[in-house]
Design a protein around this nucleic acid. Structure first.
Lengths: 342, 342
DNA sequence: GTGAAAGCGCTAACAT
DNA sequence: ATGTTAGCGCTTTCAC
């Protein structure tokens, strides 16, 4: 009942009548040990409920801890959840444990998290960098051999590995799909801040598709929102405007949720939509939602594999891996221009 | 470039020409320190890029580490993602860091994770227990003062706090909603394994609603699936059967996705549906999906608050907190019986 | 096959 | 205001 001290190696050793080192040997399959000693030790371990203190072990051994530090913007965002799961699946075989935290895309929170992770001597640092976060302070750690991988966006001020989606090409293809179905006024609903890498890249893809079709870029068709509710609002405003678009391109999954919700709410079933990043139930909507699907599993896997290779001594140049996106045509991109105008 | 040793307290002390303890004092705002020393120390810390080794600190201080161990079935499931975010938000103020892992509902993986967390001397252990996982081995840790909270389901073999949804009442209300709209043949699509606490409770709620309405329980209307694809398949089979149900109740969010996808695919728009747990875009479906919404934020917050209270010395009896669910009527529960038969 | 001593990086408990 | 000593729980090193 009282807060008893947890048993230590020494307690186990005392119980058996051997030295601490012998117990350590048995538990780590280090040096030799007689079968009898082994059994006695194991029995005492069970009896006392001994669990080695990993922190104490680690401090002595000196190397990095068997942990991976992972900073993502939001644990509850399905995209990042899928990335995180994939990372975990990949590093689990190596016995690594995940230290996780969400930054809410706040550079200060990101910094606080990475500092904590570094103070815990993580073996690997994986970060979805926030806008405005500098990473120069990580240079010395990188130089010390700590693998650092940026996910979804490149980091600022640090040459290291990163894994991103083919944002520009993907967005281009999604918008081109709309253009192919006759749309010339296509709204872009992007997330914030506007300086966000993914947002900029996807907007660039949007613009390149317009340009290819000789459609002038109309700044008034580009709107922004922080969250789903914001996206609903701006999508509604855009469509209520003087020269409304006949199609919308969603800059990410959250924007897509907002757009789809707003179209459903206002009964505008005939506005064409393509979204960047897949969402669940996309198939069940009417019309089903056409998306530029990302591959979060592959992104997570690649990031983890890259980091583990570095851990294993890979000293090759820092590289940026681009994970391809895939246009999944489901119907919402084919709503007719004429219908949207009604 | 080479893997230089990371600077230690002693390095900083040497740089400044003071003792290690003085540096420690400055950094932890422990005892006094002259303004000049403080500045010099801080400068040296910056210069060397020193970061205190939290593990070394912790081992000396002796108490539990400033970490929270969290085991959930699947990082990519939006429900658990929302719970995790809420937990993180709640424990962040206390400076606690999250150790996370997914069990995939496998008792062995759960055990491996909790053992690792315990070896790291977490301050708090929060677990969504897997079916078949025993928790008797946690008794000694509980007795030692480690707060343990089970989330979403009670744990087996250990009297400790838990936080669950009002599964039975919620499911009852959802099914009653269908019955109120004339349905008497209501299919239950549940997850697996069938022994899962939430599944059993929700099925019990389903049965109690039937009983209240004098509708005999028909075992053939209860089907199971592991995942969304499985749910699509069994929902299709059920509706293709001899005496198909006119309404379906989804046992969780994943089953809901499967059912909705299947109904959309097969064009059965007139089958009534109520789902346990909300899903995104529920509002945008046609008909919009009526759900028994859980409150993952509140579940996470309650679990964290309970654990922190224990950490602060709360020695009251272990309690189970039930977080209420809420029926959100959106339309899919009101599809008519007649229409479903066509 | 086993043990004793030293030390990992840090801080508690005493000095001064 | 600062330094010294000891020691957290473990493993390394070297001895037997």
């Amino acid at each position: 009942m009282a807060a008893n001290r947890r048993p230590t190696l020494a307690d186990v050793a005392r119980e058996v009548g051997v030295s601490a080192k012998t117990v350590s040997r048995v538990l780590n399959a280090d040096g030799p040990a007689s079968a009898q000693t082994r059994e006695q030790v194991l029995a005492a371990v069970t009896k006392l409920g001994f669990q080695p203190n990993l922190m104490a072990r680690n401090i002595r051994v000196g190397g990095p801890d068997t942990t991976v530090g992972l900073v993502i913007p939001d644990l509850a965002n399905p995209f990042f959840g899928a990335v995180a799961r994939s990372i975990e699946d990949t590093v689990r075989d190596r016995g690594l444990t995940l230290l996780m935290g969400s930054s809410a895309d706040d550079p200060d929170r990101e910094r606080a998290l990475t500092d904590k992770f570094l103070a815990r001597r993580v073996s690997v640092l994986m970060v979805v960098p926030s806008v405005g976060a500098g990473h120069a302070h990580l240079k010395t750690h990188r130089a010390t051999g700590l693998p650092i991988v940026f996910i979804d966006r490149p980091g600022a001020g640090l040459a290291t590995d990163s894994v991103v989606s083919s944002n520009r090409t993907g967005a281009h293809d999604g918008v081109a799909h709309l253009i192919a179905h006759g749309h010339r006024r296509i709204g872009f609903v992007g997330d914030l801040p506007a300086k966000l890498y993914t947002r900029r890249e996807r907007l660039a893809g949007y613009r390149s598709a317009l340009q290819e079709a000789d459609i002038p870029y109309d700044r008034s068709l580009v709107v922004n929102a922080h969250d789903q509710q914001g996206a609903e609002a701006v999508a509604g405003q855009l469509l209520d405007g003087a020269e409304p678009p006949t199609a919308l391109f969603a800059g990410n999954n959250i924007m897509a949720l907002g757009i789809v919700a707003e179209l459903a709410r206002s009964g505008r079933k005939h506005v064409a939509v393509v979204a960047f990043d897949d969402v669940s139930l996309a198939d069940a909507l009417e019309p089903a939602l056409t998306v530029v699907a990302q591959d979060p599993e592959e992104i997570g896997r690649t990031a983890a594999v890259t980091a583990l290779a570095r851990l294993d001594g890979d000293r090759s140049r820092a590289r940026t891996v681009t994970v391809p996106t895939r246009l999944i045509v489901r119907g919402s991109g084919e709503q007719s221009v004429a219908a949207a105008r009604t």
